[in-house]
């Protein structure tokens, strides 16, 4: 019989950083990555004209941009979890249909986990940040708890 063991992954809610959704028609010459999924500084490129800016540098980046653009603060819109440990890919595979093993460290993506839209950032081989709209967070968290028990059960 397999005893219940350490699931090999932890889930931690992080304090909310400043988050800004930035939309710019033409990012040429701006300090913004242009490949979808790429991260430069505080900016993650989510779409051809969309960036998620996170952290203290976000406001300064926006202030330095020539118009026109749209910057909307969404710091409170979502919750971020830090997922860390050798079993992190198994944990995410319980609900995310993407092949995350092939996601490079230092990249990100908007995708889904179960029925919730999420933004994933791979910080290290065994460490991801997952950002999800506030009201979907308890559902995602509940699924993580179930999945962690499942992984710990060892079957």
């Amino acid at each position: 019989m397999t005893a219940t063991t350490d699931p090999g992954v932890t889930v931690t809610e992080l304090p909310p950083p400043t988050r800004i959704t930035l939309r710019v028609a033409d990012p040429t010459g701006q300090p913004l990555p242009t490949r979808i999924g790429a991260i430069e500084g505080c900016a993650l490129c989510l779409g051809p004209d969309e960036w998620l800016l996170e952290g203290d540098a976000a406001a300064d980046l926006v202030a330095g941009l020539p118009g026109p653009y749209s910057a909307v603060e969404v710091s409170d819109r979502e919750i971020t979890y830090l997922l860390e440990g050798p079993a992190v890919l198994d944990l995410l595979a319980t609900g995310c249909p993407r092949d995350l093993a092939s996601m490079p460290v230092g990249a990100g993506a908007r995708t889904v986990y179960d029925t919730a839209q999420v933004v994933l950032v791979r910080e290290a081989n065994d460490r991801f940040r997952l950002t999800v709209w506030r009201s979907f967070a308890p559902h995602v968290r509940a699924l993580f708890d179930i999945a962690m028990r499942e992984i710990a059960a060892g079957l």
Binding site: L46, G47, P48, E50, A109, R110, T111, Q117
Partner: peptide
């Protein structure tokens, strides 16, 4: 029945 031109949205991705 056959070749169809259609629209999709990458709604849970780049949103395009």
């Amino acid at each position: 029945k056959g070749v169809h031109f259609e629209r999709w949205r990458h709604v849970n991705g780049c949103a395009r």
